[in-house]
Simulated scan of single mutants.
Amino acid sequence: MPHDHHHHEGGCSHESTDSDYLREIGIQYSLYTKIDVENLECLNETTEGSAKFIFKPYEERLNFDKFVESDADEELLFNIPFTGNIKLKGITIIGANDDSHPNKVRLFKNRPKLSFDDANSKADEELDLARNPNGDLEYPIKPVQFSSVHHLTLHFPSNFGDDNTRIYYIGLRGEFSQAHYHGVTICNYESRPNVSDHKNNVFDSVNHRVQ
């Protein structure tokens, strides 16, 4: 962790402190604020709606009061819609320091409403995970592969041997951009009648009526 000390006469000047570092990392991990939480979906969660609580500020990543746990078996699948487009650069996953920690994650981009059956297809990215109870491991994602993502699916197929998988935090690092709907603008523009295109027809019809 960068922590530079510069000593001067009369005291110690901290150019980079732990709090500054955490604040900077926290900004990079702010994609959770761009999730369409109302439409976030987690398949096979024990408690319905618990998944939304693990997408939280980086500073709260070690708060283990809330978590998501798998129900029938060790699999979990998150369908994560965003309010715009993201460029995903890294992911951090925190579980307990035991066998309930997931040992693999498979990522799919722009495939809304993915099911467990669908997740058997080839993933866009697949990562082997280590136990990460302290949240100090990040897995880099190829930005080129995930540069324009409006929906992200995370499939956790297995863990280190427990019957159920438990996750306390999922952090997504990257960039966000607003979605642009050019098509709507063009349609509205083209739907306006151009009087000059129809002027002669209007006059012809009037003259016809007069005659």
Rank of each mutant, 00 (worst) to 15 (best):
F108P: 05
I170K: 00
E125P: 01
E59C: 03
F203Y: 11
N207M: 05
S177C: 12
H182S: 12
S13Y: 08
Y58I: 03
K56V: 01
S70D: 09
C42R: 04
L172D: 01
S70P: 10
V105L: 14
N110Q: 03
G90E: 01
F67Q: 07
G90F: 03
L154T: 00
H101I: 02
S30H: 08
G174D: 11
L77K: 11
D36G: 13
N63T: 03
I86F: 02
H6L: 15
N194Q: 10
T165Q: 11
F176C: 11
P193L: 07
Y189C: 09
L107Y: 14
S177I: 11
I186C: 01
Y32W: 15
N200W: 09
K199S: 02
N164L: 09
F160N: 13
V149I: 14
F67G: 02
N110G: 07
Q178T: 08
K56L: 02
G84T: 03
N63R: 10
H151I: 08
H7A: 03
I80K: 06
S158I: 01
A96I: 00
H198Y: 06
R61S: 12
K142V: 10
L107E: 10
F203N: 07
H14W: 11
R106V: 02
K113W: 08
N164V: 06
F116Q: 07
Y139N: 14
I94E: 01
F78E: 00
E138I: 15
G174Q: 06
G26P: 02
N201I: 12
P143S: 12
N44R: 11
H151F: 14
R23S: 10
A130S: 15
S205W: 08
H7V: 13
N120I: 01
D99E: 12
G95F: 09
S50N: 04
I86Q: 00
E45G: 05
V184L: 14
E74N: 05
S70A: 12
D36W: 03
A179I: 08
H180S: 12
L62I: 09
I86A: 04
E126L: 09
F203H: 07
I35G: 11
C42S: 07
G95K: 03
I93P: 08
H155A: 07
T46V: 09
L107I: 13
Y32G: 02
F176K: 05
A51V: 02
